[in-house]
Simulated scan of single mutants.
Amino acid sequence: MKIEIWSDVMCPFCYIGKRNFETALEQFEHKNELEVVWKSYQLDSNIPEEPKDSYQDYLVKNKGMSQEQVKGMLDNVTLSAKQVGLEYNFDKAVMVNSLNAHKFIQFAKTKGLGDQAEEKLFLAFFTEGKNIADIDTLVQIGKELELGEAEVKAALNDEKFVSLFKQDIQEARELGVQGVPFFVLDRKYGVSGAQPPQAFLENLEVAFDEWRKLNPETKLEVTQGQSCSPDGTCE
C-alpha cells in the first residue's frame, strides 16, 4: 500500500511528523507491505537563495508577529521536537530557498534514497545550521548517502528534477493540501499535521484493512524439492 508524504524540509512540524509516523510504523504489523513516497511542497518560494534573515526575523517580517510572540512559538516547537528526540536550533537555522534541497530529494528518490535524503536535510537545517541551498552542502550530504559529487551536481542542474518538484506541488493542489506535513494513505485517507503516533497507527490500520480486501495475499501450497537460495546454499 502506498503512502505519500508532502513535506518541506524547512517545516518544523514536518520533521516532528516524520518521527511520529516512524514510531507508528514500528507498531504496525504490516509495515513491510507499505511503500512510503516523499513528495515536495514549498511553503515559501520567495525566500532568497542567499541567507538574509534569521528564522526568527523571517517570521517577524512575514507573519506579522512580534519578536516576543515568535520567540515563544519557537520555544514551544523546540520543546515539541525534544519530546520526540529531535534537537532544534532555530538560532543557527539558515533561511534560504528550499528549491535546491527539493531537487536533491527528487534525485535521491530515483536512487531509492528519498527517506534518507529527507532525514539528512531535516538534520542539516534544524540541528546543524547548514545552508541547504548551498551546492557544497548538498554534495556533502550526497556523499553521506554514497552518491557521487558529479552526479549530485548534474542533478541540481537538471530541469527534470525541477519538473518533478513542480509535479508534486500540482498534485498537492489537486488533492486540496493546504499545509504540511500531509500524509495520504492509498489515495483514500489524508492525515494533516504532526499527529501523535496513535493517530497515524489508527489511520494506517483502517486504510490497510481496506487495501487488503482489494489486494488479498497469495498463499501457495508448496511441494519442496532440492533448490538453491539467494545466500548461495544449495540443498
Rank of each mutant, 00 (worst) to 15 (best):
F161S: 02
N215A: 02
Q167L: 11
L201I: 03
E174V: 01
D134S: 09
D168H: 10
A199M: 14
E144Y: 08
E146D: 14
A199I: 12
F200P: 02
K153R: 15
V180E: 02
L147W: 09
Q178T: 14
E149V: 00
G142W: 05
N157E: 14
K143V: 05
L164A: 10
V152Y: 07
A194C: 07
D186C: 01
P216L: 05
N215I: 03
V162S: 08
E205I: 07
G129Y: 09
D186V: 00
N131E: 10
E159A: 07
Y189G: 00
K219D: 09
F161Q: 04
E210T: 06
T137K: 04
I141C: 01
L220N: 01
A155H: 11
L185G: 01
V191I: 13
G193A: 00
Q198W: 08
E174H: 10
E151N: 12
L175A: 13
E217W: 09
I132C: 05
T218Q: 13
L138H: 10
K160R: 15
E146Y: 11
I132W: 10
V177K: 08
D209L: 06
S192H: 10
L147P: 03
V162A: 07
P181N: 06
E174G: 00
Q178G: 03
G142H: 04
L145E: 09
V177E: 10
S163L: 12
E210W: 08
G193M: 08
G129R: 04
A154P: 03
P216G: 01
P197I: 01
A155P: 08
A150P: 00
Q195E: 12
N215V: 01
A207P: 05
P216R: 07
L220G: 00
I141R: 05
T137A: 01
V162K: 15
L147E: 04
N215T: 02
E171D: 15
E221M: 06
K188P: 02
I135S: 11
D136A: 12
L156K: 09
V222K: 11
D209T: 10
K143G: 06
E171F: 05
Q140M: 12
G179A: 13
T137E: 07
K188L: 07
V139G: 04
V177A: 04
N157G: 13
Q170S: 13
R187V: 00
E205Y: 05
V180Y: 06
G179H: 09
Q140F: 09
V184K: 05
E144T: 05
